[in-house]
Amino acid sequence: MTKPARNKIKIRKIDNLPARQVTFSKRRRGLLKKAGELSVLCDCEYAVIIFSATGKLFESSSSSTKDVIARYKAHIENVEKLEQPSIELQPDRIKLSKDLAEKSRVLRQMNGEDLEGLNIDELQKLEKQIEGGLSRVLQTKEEKIMSEILALEAKGAQLLQANNQLRQRIGMLSVANGKNAGVIALESDNSTAEEGLSSESGTSGSSCCANGSSPDDDSADDTLSLKLGLIPYRG
């Protein structure tokens, strides 16, 4: 069975004095308890100082209330020193501010702004400065372009050389593959001829033996010479 939801108490001053004192006592103990738990859980220092409506003091701290207050004061003083620049640095700060404002004004004038307060001499001086800066910019730009063009040409030459080397290697591989194919075909032809020769020799020998004649006879030599396509030689 679910518990009924508690109504939230509206935060405002309690008019009933006894109820206000009871609430103060309960809430004060709960606040100090939570502060102590926070110090233990998170390893932090705390100090709580409470004055009641009657002027009674209630305090609690992790170590010593005076030490925590002294640390708080030192921290506040250091923060104030960091936020406020020292008197010795004031002249330098003013000078830097003036220099920054002057540089900003010159930059705006170089961009064609805030020219109303300049006389003819100042405008001519500004024009020369802009022309000098423009010529230096154009010169630097041309140097950069030429450097990039030279780099691209060098890279193109390297790629062309690598391409030629690859073509030479492909040609050499093609020639080598052709030679290997010729050798293989020649070996195949030789093996075929040898097989035919051996088979024909066996057939002739067997027929000669069957007829009762010797393999060294002239007819056998003539037959073998005609099949090999050779002119018989008789010494």
Rank of each mutant, 00 (worst) to 15 (best):
residue 3 K to V: 12
residue 5 A to V: 07
residue 5 A to C: 08
residue 5 A to R: 05
residue 10 K to W: 13
residue 11 I to R: 05
residue 12 R to T: 05
residue 13 K to I: 09
residue 16 N to P: 01
residue 17 L to Q: 14
residue 18 P to M: 08
residue 18 P to I: 06
residue 20 R to M: 05
residue 20 R to C: 03
residue 23 T to L: 12
residue 24 F to M: 04
residue 25 S to K: 11
residue 25 S to R: 12
residue 27 R to H: 07
residue 31 L to H: 02
residue 33 K to H: 12
residue 34 K to Q: 10
residue 35 A to M: 01
residue 36 G to C: 12
residue 37 E to A: 07
residue 38 L to W: 03
residue 39 S to N: 04
residue 40 V to A: 12
residue 41 L to D: 06
residue 42 C to A: 13
residue 43 D to N: 00
residue 44 C to M: 08
residue 46 Y to H: 03
residue 48 V to S: 04
residue 49 I to Y: 05
residue 57 L to V: 06
residue 57 L to E: 03
residue 60 S to C: 08
residue 63 S to Y: 08
residue 65 T to L: 04
residue 75 H to P: 00
residue 77 E to T: 01
residue 77 E to R: 03
residue 77 E to F: 00
residue 78 N to Y: 03
residue 81 K to E: 00
residue 84 Q to D: 12
residue 87 I to G: 12
residue 87 I to Y: 14
residue 90 Q to W: 09
residue 91 P to L: 06
residue 99 D to C: 02
residue 101 A to F: 01
residue 107 L to M: 11
residue 107 L to D: 07
residue 108 R to C: 04
residue 108 R to D: 04
residue 113 E to C: 05
residue 113 E to I: 00
residue 114 D to T: 01
residue 117 G to S: 12
residue 119 N to H: 07
residue 119 N to D: 06
residue 120 I to T: 15
residue 123 L to K: 08
residue 128 K to W: 09
residue 129 Q to G: 11
residue 131 E to N: 15
residue 131 E to F: 07
residue 133 G to S: 11
residue 135 S to P: 05
residue 137 V to T: 14
residue 138 L to R: 15
residue 140 T to C: 10
residue 142 E to Y: 05
residue 167 R to T: 08
residue 169 R to W: 14
residue 172 M to Q: 15
residue 174 S to E: 15
residue 176 A to G: 10
residue 177 N to E: 13
residue 178 G to K: 10
residue 181 A to Y: 03
residue 182 G to L: 13
residue 185 A to L: 14
residue 186 L to F: 15
residue 189 D to S: 10
residue 189 D to W: 02
residue 190 N to F: 15
residue 193 A to R: 11
residue 195 E to T: 11
residue 199 S to Y: 08
residue 202 G to A: 12
residue 202 G to W: 06
residue 207 S to Q: 15
residue 209 C to I: 05
residue 209 C to R: 07
residue 210 A to C: 01
residue 214 S to H: 01
residue 214 S to C: 05
residue 215 P to T: 02
residue 216 D to R: 07
residue 219 S to Q: 15
residue 219 S to G: 14
residue 223 T to K: 00
residue 224 L to N: 05
residue 228 L to Q: 09
